[in-house]
């Protein structure tokens, strides 16, 4: 009996209290929306360079619209473009062995690039006895863990705020890290 009376009273109080209602309902919606913007899977189109990829393989590959392909004649220019962030990674053939070089500072970009390459290269994923592609990174490594991931995330939060407050004209000149350059761009 007393428990029922107490419950009734507390529920009534909660309904009357606008601040509690706000914190209970509006605040989670707001936070989840922000999280969605930060960590949500926006469709990313990787920009991939092909260096000395044999014609026969390019024909076999299912290029589609999911990636932007740039063809290079030599690896040096591809590497320069990679460093300048014009491409996210490039596929290079040393003899018969495919190798991938990724920019690697944003794990989600690296992931999207690798995913596209694995889908596009039929032999890599289907044949077990095939030697695996060697993967190199310009920055970072494949062991880029949660910490870097969250850094990338927080970087995106920062970008979001820049967008929100319309202050993208702020020029960040620091070049110690790929992230910062990305923001400045």
């Amino acid at each position: 009996m007393r428990v029922i009376a107490l419950t009734k009273r507390i529920l009534r109080q909660i309904v009357r209290d606008k601040r509690t209602m706000g914190l209970l309902i509006v605040a989670p919606i707001f936070v989840l929306t922000m999280l969605h913007f930060v960590f949500g899977n926006e469709e990313y189109t990787p920009e991939i360079g092909f260096v000395k990829v044999p014609e026969i393989i390019v024909q076999q590959m299912d290029v589609g619209d999911d990636a932007k392909i740039t063809t290079y004649d030599n690896e040096k220019t591809a590497k320069e473009d990679l460093a300048a962030r014009k491409i996210d990674g490039y596929l290079v053939f040393e003899g018969n062995n495919p190798a991938v070089v990724l920019e690697g500072s944003d794990p989600s970009v690296s992931g999207a690039t690798m995913k596209w390459l694995q889908n596009a290269l039929p032999s890599v994923s289907k044949n077990d006895n095939e030697q695996l592609m060697s993967i190199e990174y310009l920055h970072g490594s494949s062991e880029m863990g949660m910490f870097r991931l969250f850094r990338a995330g927080s970087c995106r939060i920062f970008r979001l705020f820049l967008r929100v407050f319309n202050c993208r004209s702020i020029v960040l000149t620091g070049t110690y890290n790929g992230h910062v350059r990305k923001i400045a761009r």
Binding site: M1, R2, I4, A5, K8, R9, R12, Q13, R16
Partner: peptide, 14 residues
């Protein structure tokens, strides 16, 4: 944040 009546109801139920 309750009305007088709700207060009285609560205490009388106690």
């Amino acid at each position: 944040d309750l009305t007088a009546k709700e207060n009285l109801q609560f205490f009388s139920e106690l």
